[in-house]
Write a protein that binds this DNA or RNA. Structure first.
Length: 591
DNA sequence: GGGTAGCGGGG
DNA sequence: GTGTACGCTACCC
């Protein structure tokens, strides 16, 4: 099956992992939920003295304490792996454990249970998994509707299978709200239209208003509108539900109105209701078994624009103006009826269709990142690139037997926040209109420096024989030449894989295959380029200002030396920034 | 200059 | 849920 999402529930005080999937490569395939009772939460403990520490830990209410050999920034160390009864025991017990006299530190105590599962089992969301299962016992079946997923229990192996991109069924939605007083308020202002658009041809506007338009679906009242919406989601059974700013507008609004009208919103494949997760100060709307994607977040990440309205984004991607009704006029179009109402119907559907079109263009990259980072699509779509890098590194660390560094404490974080790595070299532009301009740039300057100078927290040393070290031109930071550091070796693998994909892309004669390979190599490039950031951003586990500083120091050195060299060949640099410079050719100059 | 409050998208 | 955004600008003192 295709693994769409994952979470866990508690049954008999025990955690049961739920894998949400769909029958492989068949968008009309059935939804499946696989239950796995066999996975236990654990953390690592750094002991002062192994045996006394073990004794202290065994007195606690835990399942098991076991000695393990793991690496900590490249150095072999002995840890105690403490297995707990329930994921929620981790936050409950971790302070107690950390405060034990024989405990030096605790590690990997903040890795969500389902993420730990994916990493340990080597599973990749949106990839295919093979499972040995049997029909689940009835008490595990929490589906309220006969349209929901079939539920099975894992009885044996679960393993990843290499496969192509899954074919996904997507359904976009957009609501219109009656809003005579400006921004609508869910307590007073009803939903007047719910528009839906799928990548399989569905186009529909559910409304209480009558309309001769063929995509209009007229219902009795607002309650029926929401009910019809739930029915269509069940019938269409999409893998991905998409909206624009739907985390913070459409879904919260639908939820509030459904609560007022007393309509159950069981949109999940397990029959569960729409839920919200607090993520900082904003929400993420969650539909179990489907992936809710808020395109607004994606567009902010991938486009560099002054504004991110749906209209602006559509124009940027497709070069076409979208017909727009200003928000504060919607209630008038609604009340006017006739031609104006028809325009509102068209506008509403247009928005949903635009969301589908944008999604089809934007989903491949996020899909690819999901399959590299190895965390749920829902999560990856809401992560910053820095977080994507971090979870990728956490998975890699695990593969290499490395214990992951802790997140910074509040005080470490505020300490780091004031500091900043020095930047790239910038030469102010020479004023004027320049002709015969040439541009020089370094391909992937920072990733190249990380690899060639082996810049990594585990290779950074205080003192070292200069022959065995790379020493940065400013700051004099020293990095061992051998062995390859954790981050450099990973970037190395990424770049090697990228070269392989680019070669395949050039050799390929199939346009569709070329496109997919291109998305894949772009995703790897993004990841490699953002890897430098982990060293300089205060919240990161592999934060090391010395590394960030050393990288930019080498960067400035390379670009300045290249500019000097270019002058010997008759070029006059007029502007430079970080990894490239512009120069005017002024003819042969001898030195 | 240093520090903080407020904002984005959505109707 | 093994959780609490983010990066920028406007404006204040």
């Amino acid at each position: 099956m295709v693994l769409l999402d994952i979470d866990y529930i508690t049954r008999d005080d025990k955690a049961v992992v739920r894998l949400f999937g769909r029958e492989k490569n068949d968008p009309t395939g059935n939804s499946i939920i696989v239950l796995d009772k066999g996975f236990k939460p654990y953390i690592y403990v750094v002991p002062h003295d192994l045996d006394p520490c073990r004794e202290q830990l065994e007195e606690l209410d835990v399942l098991n304490v076991e000695k393990v050999e793991m690496k900590d920034l490249g150095r072999e160390k002995e840890f105690l792996k403490v297995t707990l009864k329930h994921p929620q025991d981790v936050p409950k017990l971790r302070d107690t454990i950390r405060d034990l006299s024989q405990v030096e530190d605790i590690r990997e105590h903040d890795i969500p249970f389902y993420r730990r599962y994916l990493i340990d089992k080597g599973l990749f969301p949106m990839g295919e998994v093979e499972v040995e299962v049997e029909t689940a016992s009835p008490e595990m079946n929490c589906v309220s509707s006969d349209k929901g997923a079939s539920i099975v229990e894992l009885k044996g192996q679960i393993r990843p299978v290499n496969s192509d991109f899954p074919e996904l069924k997507i359904l976009s939605l957009d609501i219109e709200v009656y809003n005579p007083k400006g921004m609508p308020n869910a307590e007073d202002d009803p939903i007047i239209m719910i528009s839906l658009s799928s990548n399989q041809g569905l186009r529909m506007v559910i409304s209480t208003a009558e309309s001769p338009l063929d995509f209009a679906e007229t219902v009795e009242d607002e309650a029926a509108m929401i009910q019809k919406f739930v029915e269509i989601v069940e019938d269409e059974n999409p893998d991905i539900l998409i909206g624009y700013n739907s985390d913070n507008f459409d879904f919260p609004y639908i939820k509030d109105r459904a609560a007022i009208l007393d309509i159950p919103l069981n949109l999940g494949t397990d029959g569960s209701c729409l839920k919200f997760m607090k993520r900082g100060f904003t929400n993420a709307a969650l539909v179990k078994g489907r992936i809710h994607l808020d395109l607004y977040l994606i567009m902010r990440r991938y486009l560099q624009l002054d504004r991110y309205t749906l209209e602006r984004v559509y124009l940027e991607l497709f070069g076409q103006e979208k017909y727009d009704i200003p928000g504060d006029e919607i209630h008038q179009y609604w009340s006017d009826g006739g031609e104006r109402l028809e325009k509102l119907f068209r506008y509403s559907l247009d928005d949903a269709v635009a969301v589908t079109e944008i999604a089809e263009k934007m989903i491949p990259l996020t899909l690819e990142l999901t399959r590299i980072v190895g965390q749920p699509f829902f999560d990856v779509a809401r992560m910053t690139t820095g977080q994507q890098v971090e979870w990728y590194l956490i998975r890699k660390a695990n593969e290499q037997g490395e214990v992951v560094p802790n997140k910074p404490s509040a005080s470490q974080y505020s300490n780091r926040r004031g500091k900043r790595a020095s930047g790239g070299y910038v030469k102010d532009p020479v004023k004027g209109l320049h002709e015969n301009i040439v541009y020089f740039d370094f391909r992937s300057l920072y990733p190249s420096i990380i690899i060639s100078k082996n810049v990594s927290p585990d290779t950074l040393v205080d003192e070292c024989n200069p022959e065995k070290c790379h020493i940065s031109p400013e700051g004099g930071y020293m990095f061992l030449k051998e062995p390859p550091g954790f981050v450099p070796s990973i970037i190395g693998n990424i770049l090697t894989e990228r070269v392989r994909l680019k070669t395949l892309m050039k050799e390929s004669t199939d346009d569709e295959e070329k496109k997919i390979l291109n998305v894949q190599q772009e995703a790897l490039k993004r990841l490699a380029n953002s890897m430098y950031g982990v060293y300089g951003y205060s919240r990161f586990r592999w934060y090391r200002l010395e590394c960030a500083d050393a990288i930019t120091a080498w960067g400035r050195d390379y670009i300045k030396k290249t500019m000097e060299k270019s002058e010997k060949f008759g070029f006059k640099p007029v502007y430079a920034d970080t990894d490239g410079f512009y120069a005017v050719y002024e003819g042969e100059v001898s030195d």
